[in-house]
């Protein structure tokens, strides 16, 4: 019997008089992967903020008692010359060297590699000198410190090239193989959704769909989310 880790009922968020989310309800099983799908401005990031308790909302967000959440935000507007090394950034959360090495390995930084950014030497690199993909992995490492059993990814591949994209989803898949790790990620790519998700939540201010991707997403749902011109498209072709 799959256990519930999250139960959301009637979630509504209003900011500056605008209704951003209206009456969203869904449940999430432990160890499953859910994708939040929707066009820009649909309220996906706002949903995350409500789930994290960062903004005021109406309705209820009930996490299981032993929930430990790791949050990987979409973009970090990191100043290119911010003199903060990766190690110092991780240290702001965790001092233990072994734990840091462990999460760095989990996200794909090797003990020794040819390029300084691919191995542990990246710890001494400034955060602003990292590429988009490397920064993503560091943010994931940061989220993994503290041993979370829930990971919230906001648009894991925004601003990353194709090869980098494959690594991030491959990584998410690898992490998923870990015991008891519930993953929620935001995406606007339908292909990704069917490949990696157990359930999908379609948002465009309202809840437009919720359920397993194969049976839930159809032309009607796509129209409600993206308008009548929407159809499945494969980019990167």
């Amino acid at each position: 019997m799959p256990e519930k880790i999250l139960s959301v009922t009637g979630l509504s968020v209003e900011l500056d008089g605008h209704k951003i989310l209206k009456n969203i309800s869904f449940e999430l099983n432990r160890d499953s992967t859910m994708v939040v799908l929707g066009p820009n401005g649909a309220g996906k990031t706002i949903l995350f903020k409500a789930l994290l308790g960062l903004i005021p909302f109406k309705g209820s967000v009930d996490w299981a008692k032993d929930t430990r959440i790791g949050y990987v935000p979409q973009k970090l507007a990191v100043d290119k010359d911010l003199p903060l090394t990766v190690n110092e950034f991780l240290n702001s959360k965790e001092n233990n060297k072994e734990k840091i090495s462990e999460v760095m390995r989990k996200v794909g930084f090797l003990k020794e590699a040819e390029h300084i950014h691919n191995d542990m030497r990246v710890l001494k690199t400034r955060v602003g000198d990292l590429s988009g993909g490397e920064l993503q992995r560091v943010l994931i490492a940061y989220a993994l410190l503290g041993d979370p059993n829930v990971l919230l990814f906001d648009e894991p591949t925004a601003g990353i090239d194709v090869a980098g994209e494959e690594t991030v989803y491959g990584l998410i898949n690898k992490l998923k193989a870990d015991k008891d790790l519930t993953i929620i990620f935001i995406s606007h790519e339908l292909e990704i959704v069917s490949k990696y998700a157990d359930s999908v939540l379609c948002l465009n201010k309202d809840k437009i769909c919720f359920g397993p991707p194969d049976t839930t997403i159809d032309k009607e749902v796509l129209e409600k989310m993206y308008g009548s011109e929407a159809h499945l498209y494969h980019h990167h072709d």
């Binding site: 960062l54 949050y71 935000p73 970090l76 110092e88 702001s92 959360k93």
Partner: peptide
């Protein structure tokens, strides 16, 4: 100082902590 630094990197990340 650690909290300040985290807030400089990302206010959202800091709040989530």
């Amino acid at each position: 100082s650690k909290k300040l630094l985290l807030m400089i990197v990302s206010k959202d990340l800091a709040k989530s902590q």
